[in-house]
Write a protein that binds this DNA or RNA. Sequence first.
RNA 1: GCCCCCAUCGUCUAGCGGCCUAGGACGCCUGCCUUUCACGCAGGUAACACGGGUUCAAAUCCCGUUGGGGGUGCCA
Length: 447
Amino acid sequence: MSDRVRFAPSPTGFLHVGSARTALFNWLHARSTGGTYVLRIEDTDAERNRPEMTEGLLAELEWLGLTWDEGPFYQSQQKERHREVVQDLLDKELAYLCDADNEPVKGNQIKDGLAVRFRMPQGEIIEFEDVVRGTVSFATDDLEDFVIWRSNGTPMFLLANAVDDADMGITHAIRGEDLLSGVPKVILLLNAMGAEQPTYAHLPLLVNEQRKKLSKRRDDVSIADYRERGYLPEAMVNYLALLGWGPPDDVEIRPLEEIVELFAIEDVNKAAAFFDLKKLEFVNATHLRDLEKNDFIERAKPWIEGDATPWTSENFNQDRYLKMVDLVQEKLRTLSDLPRFVDFIFLEEPVEDPDSWNKAMVKAPFASEMLDGTFKALTDCEWNTETIKEAVTEVGESLGIKLGKAQAPIRVAITGRTVGPPLFEAIALCMDRQTVLDRIARARSRL
RNA sequence: GCCCCCAUCGUCUAGCGGCCUAGGACGCCUGCCUUUCACGCAGGUAACACGGGUUCAAAUCCCGUUGGGGGUGCCA
């Protein structure tokens, strides 16, 4: 029989990077073993459960390419089944009723206003084999009776989780280590139901710089935010796969299809992993660079066409943009970097970066001579990359400075920044002479 | 407090008793290239937490210590 795994998030309204990693590892296990990947929404907490909360979750999973084979199933729809199991446990006296003060109440019938607690056996050792952690064991003496049915008539997570996994024939429970200590209770529940227990695999937690579990409150954990900040889904899953697992051939940057071939849940390691934005940026930049040009253009559209662009749609020029793509694609770390690499060709005046101005103009004693000389040289030269480069080079040489330094004031005058695309190509291909001369003159007048 | 888990460069990892004077990647530093750079290339920095065992041999096995994390809800 083939493996059945599930990703079982609670509907918190967005997809967390830690959850995404769990989803990914489940998905990888299913795909690499020919198993089935089920999506189940654990929405037993009625107060927090609103249908729109799951929409974003599903959208982000699809964006990442982690599509499911079955589901989404909603745990809340199994309520009657859950009730049946709880009642059965009451009948067998493996559970008991209790009131709001946790005082036991006589009776063996589920009743509104009363919760149901599972009776923890004494003197037992619960032991299980975790695929990533090895043998793990708990003494029931350290565990307490726990609620399986709320007084408001809804099942608790442990109960619903155990019942649903059993009913759905889940063979492998792959999830975060934060759920490890709940396992003995689930095993007790499964035993009481006479159900088989799945194989467990507890993934190492994703942590922040303080080595604490990534949290919604203090850390950037929303997959949607990363999407909006210009990260590619293939980069996200690629990076996430590297947290807690490593490719046997040391090739880290690669497509998901290859990771599927190499992945094995047994190879996942135990230690918590720091979510390193720097490395994510590197992975993203690499995937961005590897994009075929048309694909890049397609993916970049939201950053080029929306209302949020620094230029107006009338000033945008598609032909010039397409020429710029060749010059900037390899330099970007995220797609959100794109606008500021190309904005100067579409704006009336370049955006002025104060640091750049200070560095290339104020602190460079030759800045005004460079601007004057270049203005003159560009007034009547031919308009192509080589002649423009030559002109700037010559002006620089006449002042005794190399091109690297000489181009800086020109770059800042025209683009507003010291960092940007190759300057002469951008000017020759995407700007007209008058605009360039105007910008040089304007910068000169401000020195 | 109690229970559970974890421990290789700053970070992510390779290593599963000898191939390890510990490999790769990110970051950082240096140099080269050069039209800036967030591109490329070549180098460099840097780790087996500590203490006991076991063994001819330990990063790899065992025990302890220390450190870190997680869990201990009528949240999931």
